[in-house]
Amino acid sequence: MSTPTSDSGQGDDASRRDFLYIATGAFGGIGTALAIWPLIDQMNPSSDVLALASTEVDLSPVEEGQAITVVWRSKPVFIRYRTAAEIEAARSVDVDDLRHPEADEERVQQDKWLIMVGICTHLGCVPLGQKATDPQGEFGGWFCPCHGSHYDTSGRIRKGPAPENLPVPPYEFLSDTSIKIG
């Protein structure tokens, strides 16, 4: 410290030390981040939950105007055999006026069968409207009692806080009267 030579040497030492500090810090930081990842990822769905369950549904007992609820990936799925009047109501709407613009034709594979996940896109409640005695909202579809979202006969959001239409799950018709969801 006291001699000039050691002062000049200190400059080199300092830069080498800086490198060591940064390298040690970076090594420790990245290593810690890698070590934390399993602790975070363990909370994601486990393999058995991820194993994609598919559900087959027989539609033959469902009468026109009726609706049934089935379970797919532990979520309720609404299946509604729509009347001609309901289909007409869903198609007479100007799509551009909708909050989440989707034509009714894009949301169904067969006009009379409306199939969608029955979970309100606001905060996840199950909307009412499956039973004839349920409130069906101002647009004759579904009404979410939690925060007052109204869905129409195509399951599209028309009024209330929900941002999106009820989502349509992947499904296919195995025959005219049976479908496979998932």
Partner: peptide
Amino acid sequence: WLWGGFAIASP
């Protein structure tokens, strides 16, 4: 991630 699944359940 919070749910550990696709809905609220045992996890």
